[in-house]
Design a protein around this nucleic acid. Structure first.
Lengths: 240, 240
DNA sequence: AAAATTAATATGTAGCTACATAAAATTGTC
DNA sequence: GACAATTTTATGTAGCTACATATTAATTTT
């Protein structure tokens, strides 16, 4: 490009993502080795010819994804023991089924009001026990069992749940649409199907099943705790 | 506070986290219902008495955590189908064992060079097959089997692996410390222990085991793909 | 020498401006 | 009226400044 006789080099403006990737590249190629301290943001900014705020955004992102650690005054250093950090999305079960191109089905199995047993009070981190709504239901994909959920819903926090026809609409959908939470604990493990679960999921006793337990709160108040037992072959994938 | 006879109200400066929490609160209490369009950043900024950049940071965070969706010109709206979004940390197995207060142990079971079978080329998204290093090893906690890993390492991408004494140091540790990746795919599922796996993990045949498969790349080049079969009782928890 | 205080410093955050970009809404053309 | 071109608009990003905050390092006090 030429303006008034002078050659004007195109000014390439670095985005914070460019800075992030270039710094990440240096971690990848060993320029900055695990445990090493990186130059301060200001120096990197000068080197890259951008503002410190741009470097700051880049480094924060690297810090979030577990590549580096940052401490005020301590500076930034490459994490010595990198962790694999992944983001998981757990959709509403209906959407999960429909995204697979299957027809969603739902069957209410049991609806009772019971005193919460100790394993569940423990999940809620509650001091004592109380009466909650227990909803047992089956989600189906193309008519086949997909997920069996055994759920407890706090009647103190969510009394409106009693107004809902849980034979027509799953508690999963109603809660997730109407009761956003501020805290969510997840737990994944494998279990062998017991006789009852095997019967419900139409599989053999002893089959290896993946279980997803999810407990949610709004503030300090418990909303719900579900044990979702998935049918054989279920798998969880990290997104992108 | 009084200065020179005038009452001076303390100016409370809102942080972007405050803005985020207040907007989130409105989603929680239904002021903004699922599907609703929120005021534009500028209006929220005026309402809260802060800069648009502060609102922008807040809204971006809400967008990242799956509460709202933002689109240029389209504005911001509350997600109609909220997903449970969680962040998972998968540490180096040694650290995982030691963080539980157990003594870490490691045993190399097999080390061969083999042509990669189709299921693994599929994970790597490779066109054809090639020779890779296959490492089978057992991680122990207090002398008991903890995780059995069956790993493939690309000799094209990571030829240095041949220099490492994999009887002394696990490929898991060496790779994670020396070969940062740019892409990582994770897959979790449950399987019944077959005879060989049961023997290695010292459990019964048919036991329900959680499997974590992880495949990593640097750029487009495959680094490694592991199938980590965990001992009975293993569970994955989301952090914080 | 140990403890408490102070200073120095790197990151964290808020405010402002200017401009980029994507998508919707409008206008113009055939 | 359908399609293309243009304008409008809300979010996205970069740069700058100023100040906050957490830690470490240095200094002073006991």
């Amino acid at each position: 490009m030429t303006v008034g006789g002078d050659t004007v080099t195109e000014v390439v403006r670095l985005s914070w993502k460019d800075v992030r990737d270039r710094v990440h590249g240096r971690v990848l190629d060993g320029t900055y080795a695990p445990g090493d301290r990186l130059p301060r943001d200001e120096d990197l900014a000068e080197e890259f010819g951008c503002a410190r705020s741009t470097v700051q955004r880049a480094m924060q992102d690297l810090s979030l994804s577990g590549i580096v650690e940052r401490r005020r005054k301590g500076g930034t250093r490459v994490r010595r023991d990198p962790v694999t950090r992944a983001t998981l999305d757990i959709p509403i079960t209906r959407n999960e089924v429909e995204n697979r191109g299957a027809v969603y089905g739902y069957r209410l199995i049991g609806l009772t009001t019971e005193a919460v047993p100790p394993p569940v009070t423990a999940k809620f981190e509650m001091a004592g026990s109380e009466e909650m709504l227990r909803v047992r239901a089956l989600h189906l994909a193309d008519g086949h069992p997909f997920v069996f959920e055994d759920r407890w819903v706090s009647l103190r926090t969510v009394p409106e749940i009693l107004e809902i026809d849980l034979a027509a609409q799953s508690a999963n959908e109603w809660l997730v649409r109407n009761k956003p939470y501020t805290r969510c604990d997840l737990r994944f493990y494998a279990m062998n199907a017991d006789a009852e679960t095997a019967a419900i999921l139409e599989t053999g006793e002893g089959a290896a099943l993946m279980v997803i337990e999810r407990t949610t709160w709004i503030g300090l108040d418990p909303i719900t705790s579900v044990k979702a037992v998935t049918a054989p072959g279920y798998e969880i994938l990290t997104r992108s």
